[in-house]
């Protein structure tokens, strides 16, 4: 986070379908992978248990190089580990389309260089069906406009939910920290006025 992020204005590419509800971050990256002190080195751990099945979708040669994961509801629930979006990013994903994300995971995604594309269940289902049927189907995510398109699914510039702050950051490539450091005087002013009973560690 200390260094600049890659700006993400458009994410275009093929999709990988993962049609399961409640995929938790222990599945995305098992806990045994958390004993590192770096932000990289997690791609081999991505869905490690499920990848032991040669037919698991990420093992399929026709899915290699896909940029967008198409997931089910409540994706990324469980542990707050940022290692999960780091692993997805390192694998090559830049966006995840789902009808819903777990809160902490959704917050972590932009910090790891991933666009959370939360769209209407019907839109997510159409994209899921299209990429399941055709590994070559292309998806286009317009981050600035907050729309998603997938011709094979009959989806044309459907809006998705992404708050302004996350959108601006993804598009600019600025980290949250870089933005906040500009407000240092506001923080100092708040600290000077804070009620003494709120000072937990005094």
């Amino acid at each position: 986070m200390g260094s600049r992020m890659e700006p993400l204005v458009h994410v275009t590419g093929r999709g990988v379908p993962l049609d399961r509800p409640n995929v938790d971050t222990d599945q995305i990256i098992p806990a045994a992978w958390l004993k590192k002190t770096t932000r990289t080195g997690y791609a081999d751990g991505l869905f490690e248990q499920w990848r032991q099945d040669p037919d698991f979708v990420l093992n399929r040669p026709e899915r290699a190089g896909a940029r967008i994961l198409v997931a089910g509801p409540n994706f990324g629930c469980g542990s707050s580990r940022e290692h999960a979006p780091w692993a997805l990013h390192e694998w090559g994903f830049r966006a995840v389309i789902a009808p819903g994300f777990a809160d902490i995971f959704r917050n972590n995604m932009p910090n790891a260089g991933l666009v959370p594309v939360r769209c209407e269940p019907a839109v997510a289902a159409a994209v899921m069906a299209a990429v399941t049927a055709d590994p070559a189907a292309e998806i286009a995510v317009d981050v600035a406009a907050r729309t998603v398109a997938c011709e094979a699914a009959g989806v044309r510039a459907e809006p998705f939910q992404l708050d302004d702050e996350a959108r601006d950051r993804l598009v600019s490539g600025l980290t949250q920290l870089e933005v906040t450091l500009r407000a240092a005087d506001r923080i100092a002013a708040y600290e000077a006025a804070r009620a003494p009973w709120l000072d937990v560690t005094a």
């Binding site: 986070m1 580990r81 940022e82 902490i104 972590n108 790891a112 949250q176 920290l177 923080i187």
Partner: peptide
């Protein structure tokens, strides 16, 4: 709970961006 980038943000600023 927060992610690691947010930990860095809190360490540096004692604040967090949150909806």
């Amino acid at each position: 709970g927060i992610g690691t980038s947010e930990i860095e943000h809190v360490l540096a600023t004692q604040t967090l961006r949150a909806r």
